[in-house]
Design a protein around this nucleic acid. Structure first.
Lengths: 345, 345
DNA sequence: TTGAAAGCGCTAACAC
DNA sequence: GTGTTAGCGCTTTCAA
């Protein structure tokens, strides 16, 4: 196609061929209003013919703007995260932004180092879902000082005037627990994560609230805190089997953990939901295929990703509403399946 | 921390304060051997003190090199892809490269537009897993002409001297089918994808090869071709139920499809594996939790991602072996679980 | 409607 | 071991 694969074409080359100034070419290429239609047409045609591609580095150097958004997530390979990233990518792409994605692997140290990289890459804005154990947020300060906007999603924190985008974890936790209580369950184990993370703390609060509404005293022995991964689910099941009297329900703060817990319980001849009812969180595809199918909270990952990026881009474009919206709460709903239908339903 | 959050510090600022030349600062910052230790120390200290961050745009503009790798995958939100990306991200990060990730959403058009974006972003190299229906590869030509290396993984194609990184799909398909045959199955349905994609074509060839080895004639009526998603699995199950005589096994080219097919078969009172044995492909987490657990081919997504990036970076660094390695084949293994244990085993 | 020219921050060839 | 200087390709102010 192109005739000169080796040498990079610049606006100077185009200007020279056309006998106009480089600035005219520059303007024509961005449809500047002060350039005649004829010139614009000539320039664009020539540019195409010569295989011109704009040098974004020169452009960024001049404009001090990168059209790049940084994303830091705890793990790439979870259903929720990859869905959220998928949504982000779509919106970013449509709006001419690039995404630089990195993962903290659930540690605060790696997260800080990722932030450093993002800072050096001069991202226009940063999107973050916090690592499992991040407490101190001062690794974000260098961005805040430079007025680089940060949006937290899902695992959020109060940080200056950053926008947070979440689901109502409290409500969801309460809904899940109420559902179990309505099924007649009375000794409900809750498997949760690090309480410094809003998602887990809020779900636990919801759990407590539901108990209170049913006049059931909160029993701390029924709370299991772990990292909510597969092995932890297995481990939790063993703990549950050792509890006396035996619990009649489990509400786990994610599906991966719920499902592996359920599997281990089944191996020990526990019938689900008859002996123990189970509810998860996330509506991971896996929840639809386990036996019995897992009742869970539906989480709109892709949609959340889209909203996060739309929000950030609006912010970058200056539709600032000066923090008119500081927290955005998205809907989530309880999906009732067989794993929690205790009795006669 | 930093005292001047507003103004961006440059090497000129540091040079001025220290009374040295900008070039000295530039060299000191990269530990150039011709700079004295004392100067290096002074410069680094001052740089840190002033909150200096290198301007990668100026640097890239000068060096015509971006330290950025583009990645185009069909879908972000699948277990295999997010694992592969996770591996890629780790290696890239460790080696000082950034990843720009985008998804083709399984269409050739979007893929071409992604390539265009990557090209404009001046990626140093590109990593691609092809969309479901990509036939024509000429959207990659602009990169090839500029000698930008392209590595294909998983869904690959013969393209100039690009490196391909895959598992041995033929062998895996044969292994899976042989396993079913060894269990006594004789009418094995194979659910496959677009035959222009190596992964599906190779698996089908493996299937045929295994049949031949057992002297069983290939019956094209037992081949179902679709997009291998959830709905397609359900649909395939219905087709299978309509076949006479009824097939006694299903080998699906991915787990998502296998699992949904299995679920629908079960709804129609088919006993698995007794009536119909099932084998999937990918070792998606879901395969361990369905009932019965799904026999499948284990795919090392994360490892594949790592190897892809290591390979590309080596290439970029000039360890070229001038295509000494043009195709890299990774191991995969059959994991036998309950869904395929037909008889007495 | 177009042109001339300065400068974004960095690197590297060359000079000392 | 350090300094001088010429760009990399683009945008944008000011002038015409």
């Amino acid at each position: 196609m192109t005739e000169k694969p080796s040498k990079e074409i610049t606006i100077y080359d185009i200007a020279e061929v056309l006998g106009v100034a480089p600035s005219t070419v520059s303007r024509a290429l961005k449809n500047h209003h002060s350039i005649s239609d004829a010139t614009i047409k000539r320039v664009r045609k020539q540019a195409k013919k010569m295989g011109y591609r704009s040098n974004i580095f020169a452009k960024n150097l001049r404009r001090q703007q990168t059209n790049t958004i940084g994303v830091i997530v705890p793990k790439l390979n979870s259903h929720f995260m990859s869905s959220a990233l998928s949504g982000m990518e779509k919106v970013a792409n449509t709006n001419g932004y690039n995404l630089i994605i990195s993962q903290s692997s659930e540690t605060a140290e790696k997260e800080a180092s990722n932030v450093e990289t993002m800072f050096k890459s001069r991202v226009d804005g940063l999107i973050v879902s916090l690592a499992y154990n991040t407490e101190d947020l001062k690794h974000f300060d260098q961005l805040a000082e430079r007025n680089i906007p940060i949006i937290f999603f899902d695992r959020v924190a109060d940080y200056h005037s950053s926008t947070n985008i979440v689901i109502n974890n409290f409500k969801a936790g309460r809904m899940a627990t109420n559902h179990l209580l309505d099924q007649g369950c009375r000794r409900i184990v809750h498997i949760t994560g690090n309480q410094i993370r809003n998602v887990y703390e809020d779900r636990l609060r919801g759990y407590k609230k539901a108990l209170k509404e049913h006049n059931i005293p909160f029993d701390p022995d029924l709370i299991i805190e772990n990292r909510l991964n597969e092995e932890d689910g297995t481990e939790a099941a063993k703990q549950i089997l050792d509890m006396t009297p035996r619990p009649d329900a489990v509400f786990a703060a994610n599906d991966v953990c719920a499902v592996s817990c359920m599997a281990t319980l089944k191996e020990h001849s526990i019938s689900i939901p008859n002996d123990i009812a189970v509810v998860g969180f996330n509506n991971d595809p896996i929840s639809r295929y386990v036996e019995p199918k897992l009742t869970t909270i539906n989480y709109h990952g892709e949609e959340m990703g889209e909203i996060v990026v739309i929000n950030l881009i609006n912010h970058l474009k200056g539709d600032n509403h000066i923090n008119a919206t500081n927290t955005i709460i998205l809907n989530s709903e309880l999906i009732i399946r067989q794993s929690s239908k205790c009795c006669d339903s």
